[in-house]
């Protein structure tokens, strides 16, 4: 899940009687599953929440290129290198569609990027962990993209047309990303003792941060209730997390790897896996900026942006000169 704890700016979900006629008409459209399109009237809070959610998602795609980029030059085979490059290229593409979807709401990509670089916009907490071995590239595909798909498939049905349509395309590519990640893990789990140890170590380090990707329990959250009423959040964080655990544990068993949770067990009564408590202090620390890589990730993005300023200025200057020559 690439958008976590998105604020809606409301203090309570309002009842029908408290809404203005415009708000009532808007909610009626949502309830009738009619998609909202860029030029349609929409409450400001809906617009602002979507901008936050979509831009968080876009930023996550772009920042998420960095931990994987860390291994492009060291991929172990030419085939793996090609697959990883294709995957990272997809992520850049996802960032572009998502920034475009956000732009339909009246903000510019440059504004959103400025918010990110100023530390005012968030991106998924997961990208603040380091990729230390090749198995981490497998774990990211398998777990991180797996968690992202879990969240994004329901969003294909979300109320905002451009976001829903972007999600349809993104989900197709994400499912390839997840398979390639699992394939890396499979090769390593069936490989030498050193490779198997790397695979286990990657699962040990990425398991809990992956569960944190869904965000804290939002059963009581006003923001989540409002986002659910607007149909830009379809399932609760806990529901999504449970689905992820239920799907992933058998996959880990097939790999012969141990999920690092002594409390993990199948509950026949619930028909789900029970799992141990998540360390939310770690999550909040990472969200606040104190994860292992937050500062590095932002420093690299800001540096790339600043280093590229002269290129962007030159491209603009050239385009203006060319336009002037054509007009003359």
């Amino acid at each position: 899940m690439y958008a976590q704890m998105v604020e809606t700016g409301v203090s309570a979900v309002r009842a029908q009687a408290e809404m203005t006629p415009e708000e009532r008409a808007f909610q009626a459209r949502i309830d009738a599953d009619i998609k909202i399109e860029p030029k349609d009237p929409m409450p400001d809070a809906y617009r602002r929440t979507l901008v936050r959610q979509i831009s968080q998602h876009a930023h996550s795609e772009i920042v998420g290129m960095l931990p994987e980029g860390n291994w492009v030059t060291r991929a172990p085979t030419l085939k793996r290198k090609a697959i990883l490059m294709a995957k990272i290229q997809d992520e850049g593409g996802h960032g572009l569609y998502l920034y475009s979807a956000a732009e339909t709401l009246g903000v510019s990509r440059d504004q959103l990027i400025a918010e990110l670089h100023a530390g005012r916009a968030k991106y998924s907490s997961i990208f603040n962990y380091p990729t230390l071995s090749w198995a981490d590239i497998g774990a990211i595909g398998w777990l991180v993209d797996g968690a992202a798909i879990m969240n994004q498939i329901p969003l294909c049905r979300c109320s905002y047309g451009p976001y829903a349509r972007a999600m349809v395309r993104i989900c197709k590519e994400e499912s390839f990303h997840q398979r390639q990640g699992y394939d890396i893990m499979l090769a390593m789990a069936q490989g030498t003792a050193a490779q198997k140890a790397m695979a286990q170590d990657a699962l040990d380090r990425w398991w809990w941060p992956s569960l944190m990707m869904f965000g804290p329990s939002d059963a009581e959250s006003v923001h989540s209730a409002q986002s659910a009423a607007w149909k830009i959040k379809i399932l609760s964080n806990d529901e999504l997390r449970q689905r992820f655990v239920d799907q992933t544990v058998p996959q880990a068993e097939y790999l012969g790897l141990a999920v690092p949770d002594p409390e993990l067990r199948w509950s026949p009564e619930r028909g789900h896996y029970d799992f141990g408590a998540i360390d939310w202090t770690e999550f909040y620390a990472v969200i606040k900026g104190d994860g292992p890589c937050n500062r590095d990730r932002m420093a690299v993005r800001v540096q790339a942006w600043e280093d590229g300023a002269w290129v962007r200025e030159a491209a603009m200057a050239h385009a203006e000169r060319r336009a002037a020559r054509q007009a003359a």
């Binding site: 772009i62 960095l66 980029g69 490059m85 990272i88 850049g92 920034y99 590229g308 290129v311």
Partner: peptide
């Protein structure tokens, strides 16, 4: 490949 994530614009 060394450029990944560091180009002047996402398109690049």
């Amino acid at each position: 490949g060394e450029w990944v994530g560091k180009a002047p614009a996402i398109e690049e």
